[in-house]
Amino acid sequence: MPTSVPVIRTIAMPADTNPAGDIFGGWLMAQMDLAAGNVAARIARGRCATIAVDQMTFVSPVFVGDEVSFYSEIVKRGRTSIRIRIEAWRRPREGDEMQRVTEATFTFVAIDEDRKPRPLPAD
């Protein structure tokens, strides 16, 4: 169970489903990228670009109406890059029990106005 505050929370809606009626994995990955990007932008104090996503394994499905929460952990901070692990957890609309859905590590690079890598600010 996560002990931190989620970076973002959202509700899975019917528009987020694939043709079989299940929540589309691409939607979930996009939400995770938004969460990681939010953390990266705060650390970089500016614009960042996603350059890599490490392995994603779906361990539990997400259903329409579920509240999905995204939790972050800084894995590594480099000169221009940040690696952020994101975990996704679901809570059924009418319940309290949370279940882990997936996790992945996102790598971002801080970029300047010309979209060139720039150093991260000091802590």
Rank of each mutant, 00 (worst) to 15 (best):
Q31N: 04
R79H: 15
A52P: 01
V75M: 11
F58N: 08
K76G: 08
R9F: 02
A49C: 12
I82M: 13
A30D: 00
A36C: 06
G46C: 10
I23D: 06
M1W: 03
D66W: 00
G78V: 11
S69C: 14
I43T: 14
I43N: 11
D22N: 15
M56R: 02
R42L: 10
A40E: 02
T10W: 09
Q55D: 06
A12R: 02
M29G: 03
V59I: 15
C48A: 12
M1Y: 02
V7K: 03
R79Q: 14
A36E: 00
Q55I: 02
M13H: 12
M32G: 12
V59R: 15
G46F: 11
T3M: 09
E73H: 13
A20G: 09
D33I: 04
N38F: 08
G78L: 12
L28E: 06
L34T: 13
R42Q: 15
R77E: 14
I51P: 03
C48L: 06
M13K: 15
E73V: 14
P19L: 10
D66Q: 04
P61H: 04
P61W: 01
G37E: 08
I8G: 02
P19M: 09
V75W: 01
N18W: 05
S72H: 13
E73L: 13
R42E: 13
M56C: 13
A44Q: 11
P2Q: 09
S60W: 11
A41H: 03
V68W: 00
R47A: 12
M56H: 01
R77T: 14
K76I: 02
V68K: 03
R77Y: 02
V7S: 02
I51M: 10
I11Q: 10
S72N: 09
A35F: 07
G21T: 10
R42P: 02
Q55A: 10
R47F: 02
F63I: 11
R9D: 00
I23C: 05
V68A: 07
S60C: 13
W27K: 02
N18H: 04
G21I: 08
A15V: 10
L34E: 11
N38M: 13
E73W: 05
M1F: 04
D22A: 14
G37Y: 09
I51H: 01
V59D: 13
S60N: 14
R42K: 15
A36W: 04
E67I: 15
G21P: 05
F24N: 08
G26Y: 02
T50C: 07
P6W: 00
